[in-house]
Each structure stands twice: as structure tokens, then as C-alpha cells.
Write a protein that binds this DNA or RNA. Structure first.
Lengths: 189, 189
DNA sequence: CTTCAACCACGACAACTGTAGTACTATGGG
DNA sequence: CCCATAGTACTACAGTTGTCGTGGTTGAAG
């Protein structure tokens, strides 16, 4: 198996775009090659099987979705109150809007995880760690809201972004700023 | 195009199972025939194209996901307070658990809607009407909580069920009863 | 310069897919 | 009884797919 990391990542990024644009159904070796602008057959030199490819895509998407260290550090310089939580929620939406392909690819992968135990295990680990981190972070940073508040924010934002990316006109029935404002206010309790 | 409604619905139900079990990728005429236990080629006698098939599946899924009139009437005999809202939320989870295939199929369709304007229009109409109905219903039935409360419940439950069906072990980090209890209490404000 | 492993381009192949066509069957109205 | 119509079974076909093999190129170590 070929291990040219630069080219491998370029192929994985192409795979993410293909997943977002064509869905799991369109995710073929040839589609990836075409998207990445490399000769047909290249992707199959890098990924042993379609299954293998998807596991690697999951890792790549996780990398791309993680917020940057800097942006977290930057936010932590601000006062630790409700308005900071509001800012974090806005950041999540901004990130989703800025990299729709990654979010949509992740949604495709989550559906795939339903039938591929290996992928499910990997994604479960990632998402559980993420939620745990958020709960701990909220407590340690002395941000307002208990554990349940973080969970309500988590599921509320998950649902909202899911709707915003798949059925934007339904999400648009709710004003973004007002939604986040009310969500945070009431979740914190 | 053949119009034997019983057989057509059987094929659509088979298609929903296939979507849930194999994903959009596995949704082929032959897979539907096999699932429905009819001779190969049957599904293609009923659906002009794969596109056409998916539109019809969307309609069928919507039918299957709608709560029964009786169960609504039954609930409305109960006192119109917070505990009734809690009951409604539990009903949603029960319905999702009881018909996972329909929910998973709908998730596949929502992702498809991302790239098929016709499907997106149809689903947008359905989901917008559903949300509007819930908001109006909450007000008319003199249930506690304003418009925003209903929206918070909507997105909170959407996110929770999405997680529960795709990554159950992550959702299981949160106790179901406690989640609904706190969600309703804080959403109502 | 030679060698050798990693990388790359390309093609082959069997399996599967969407779609459309054709002919058989059932049935109920005249 | 006849036959028109809807439903059904089956098949053909061209295009696409996952996967694997083969041979060529590169670039650095010896």
C-alpha cells in the first residue's frame, strides 16, 4: 500500500467532497480520482478496499472538524460568562457553514456506521470523547451551566445544524441569533 | 406504469428496509425485489426510475412516521400540563425505537435531498408543516411553553434521536428519562 | 553507475446496475 | 365465450464498479 502522505490526504479531501456532493453512493475509486485530478486507478493504489477508504475518511474528517487550538485559547481570554457560551455556539454554526462538505461527509459516515461495526466503534469513541471534553471544559473553565446544560446545548446544536445543512429552509424558519440566545439562556437554567 | 397499490406499498416498505439496512448505495431495483420476495424486474415495472422511486419512498416514509390520530386524541384527554409535554417527547422516542427503519430511511433521504431539489422541496414542505403544526398545537392545546420552547424541543429531540439511532452508545451516556425531563423543564423556561 | 524499494499510470475483468422491452397470465364486462 | 386491459415474469444490454496485476519511473543508498 502506497504511503505518500500528501497525496493520500489530497485523495481523502477529494473523497470528502465526493461524499458531500454525491453521497455514499457516488463514493467510488474513479470519482475520487477525478475529483483529485489524478489518473484513474490512483485511489486504488492507496486504499486496499472501499471499507478501508471510509475508515480513513472518518479520521480525516475528524481532523478537519476539530476547532483550532488558537481559537479556543482566544475565546478563553474573554470573560467566562453566558455570552462566551453564546459565542461558542455561534462558532460551531460558522464552522459548519464554512466546511459544509466535512459535516455532510460526517453525516454520510454516521449512516454508514449504522451497518459497519468497525466504523461505528471509531465514531463512537470520537463523539463520546468530544462530549466528555465539552462537559469537563465547561466545568473547568467556570462557564455557567451544569452537566445537563452542556448536554442540552450539544443535542440542540446537533439537531439545528443537521436541519440547517439538510433542509435549510426549515431551519431558516428560526432566527439564528434568537435561537442560540434562547437555547443558551434556557439550557443554563 | 403498474398501479397495484398493495404491491406498490409492499415494494416501498421493502425499499425502506433496504435503505435502512444497506443505505442509499444498496437501494437497487434488484435489492427491493429480493427484500419484497418478488421476481427480479418487478420493482422496475412500478417505478419509472430510481429518482421516481425515491420520491415515492419519501411519501411512504412520511406516512409511516406520522403519529396516529388515536394516540393524539388519547393524550389530549390528559391534563394539559408539563407532564403531557414530557409524555409527547417519550412517545417520539418510542416511535423512533419501534420503527428505526423509517427513521434511518428518512435520514438517507434527507442526505439525498441535499443534491436533489425536487426531493428537498418535498421534504422541506413536510418538515415545515410538521413544525408549524407543533407550534400551533402547543398554543391551541394550552400546553405550557411559548413558540421558542417548541422549537427548542424540536431541535433537541431531533439531535437526540439522530444520535440515538446512529451512535447509540454516545446517546446512552445520557439517561433518557432525565434528558427529557430536563429538556422540557428548561425549554418551557 | 547499479540496485532496489517506493510510487505511479494504466488496463483487464467479472460482477452488478438502471432501464427498457417482450411475452405470458388473470379477470371481468360485453 | 372473447378479448381488452392491467398486472406480472423474465431477459437483454450497455454502462459502471471494486479489485488486482503488470510494467514503468524515480530517487536515493550502496
Amino acid at each position: 500500500m502506497v504511503r505518500n502522505e500528501a497525496r493520500r490526504n489530497a485523495l481523502l479531501d477529494a473523497a470528502i467532497d465526493v461524499l458531500a456532493e454525491e453521497g455514499a453512493r457516488g463514493l467510488t475509486y474513479r470519482a475520487i480520482d477525478a475529483k483529485a485530478g489524478v489518473p484513474a486507478g490512483t485511489a486504488s493504489n492507496y486504499f486496499a478496499s472501499r471499507e478501508d477508504l471510509m475508515s480513513e475518511v472518518a479520521i480525516r474528517v475528524t481532523q478537519r472538524l476539530a476547532p483550532s487550538e488558537e481559537s479556543i485559547a482566544e475565546s478563553l481570554a474573554l470573560p467566562r460568562d453566558r455570552s462566551l457560551t453564546v459565542k461558542f455556539m455561534h462558532d460551531i454554526v460558522k464552522r459548519a457553514d464554512a466546511d459544509k462538505a466535512s459535516y455532510l461527509a460526517m453525516m454520510e459516515l454516521r449512516l454508514e456506521a449504522t451497518r459497519r461495526p468497525e466504523l461505528r466503534t471509531a465514531l463512537t469513541k470520537t463523539f463520546a470523547a468530544n462530549l466528555d471534553f465539552n462537559i469537563a471544559f465547561n466545568a473547568e473553565s467556570e462557564l455557567p451551566g451544569d452537566r445537563m446544560a452542556v448536554i442540552l446545548l450539544y443535542f440542540g446544536m446537533t439537531g439545528f445544524i443537521y436541519e440547517r445543512l439538510t433542509l435549510p429552509d426549515v431551519a431558516a424558519m428560526t432566527d439564528l441569533d434568537e435561537f442560540i440566545e434562547v437555547l443558551v439562556t434556557r439550557a443554563i437554567g
